[in-house]
């Protein structure tokens, strides 16, 4: 479903250039659960942003559901983000002025979905993360775990093909982290493709496949890593 071929991402920095990604080739099948791990600055987040169409490869090809999307115009890429891709962030990024319900409705607001349908779908999404009783609370009235579960409900409310999570438990205590990962894995079991960026090896251990990044390059063939996890 996702295919990267020889992807580079470089930034100009002073006189020289920084190579955030070097010749990354990676393919992810529909329904897979992949963990991206690596030390800080290894390019995990850059890779995730390219997968999420928030950033473009400097060089190389990115095909998403069989379509070359690395060079699509901005308008088409925002449609892709709206309908096919869900994001979960380390710092939740909930709008503080909106209730949990309002935050979950946000992508549908910009998607032009009618009010009644927004309400109904948001309610279902909140129920699927077990947050229905807290639907009317604003983020400052929710615990960290609850905030992240609201963010997950928001990410899946448009029925995306893939969920991209950037350190989803990085800001949570152990219990909340387990709770959040439980929700994510349950969604994966129902067929949602899941890509999680983390530097927590325990968390990565739950994934079907672990992809290591070091200095912007993949380290070790993915097949080897997959078999290690299964062993």
């Amino acid at each position: 479903m996702i295919g990267l071929q020889g992807v580079w991402r470089t930034y100009p920095m002073g006189e020289g250039v920084v190579h955030a990604l070097r010749d990354v080739s990676l393919s992810i099948a529909a329904g897979e659960y992949v963990a991206l791990i690596g030390p800080s600055g290894s390019g995990k987040s850059t890779l995730l942003h390219i997968l999420g169409c928030l950033d473009r490869p400097t060089q190389g090809r990115y095909s998403f559901e069989g379509r070359e999307v690395g060079s699509l115009p901005d308008g088409e890429r925002s449609l892709l983000r709206r309908n096919r891709i869900g994001f979960v962030f380390q710092f939740f990024h909930l709008l503080p002025r909106l209730t949990a319900q309002g935050n979950v409705e946000l992508p549908m607001l910009f998607g032009g979905i009618a009010r009644d349908e927004r309400r109904e779908r948001a309610t279902r999404a909140l129920a699927s993360v077990g947050l229905l009783p807290r639907a009317g609370h604003r983020p400052d009235q929710l615990s960290g775990g609850e905030r992240q579960r609201a963010a997950i409900a928001r990410a899946v409310v448009m029925n995306p093909a893939v969920l991209l999570a950037d350190e989803p438990t990085g800001n949570l205590d152990r219990a909340s982290a387990q709770e959040v990962m439980g929700v994510l894995e349950a969604m994966n079991r129902q067929g949602l493709t899941l890509v999680v960026v983390t530097h927590d090896p325990v968390l990565a251990g739950h994934a079907q496949r672990v992809v290591h990044l070091t200095d912007g390059a993949l380290s070790g063939p993915p097949e080897v890593l997959t078999s290690t996890v299964e062993a």
Partner: peptide, 16 residues
């Protein structure tokens, strides 16, 4: 900035 970034990530188009 964070809100605008979020709206973009959620698929809000630039004209919106």
């Amino acid at each position: 900035r964070a809100e605008i970034g979020l709206l973009k990530a959620l698929g809000a188009a630039e004209p919106q």
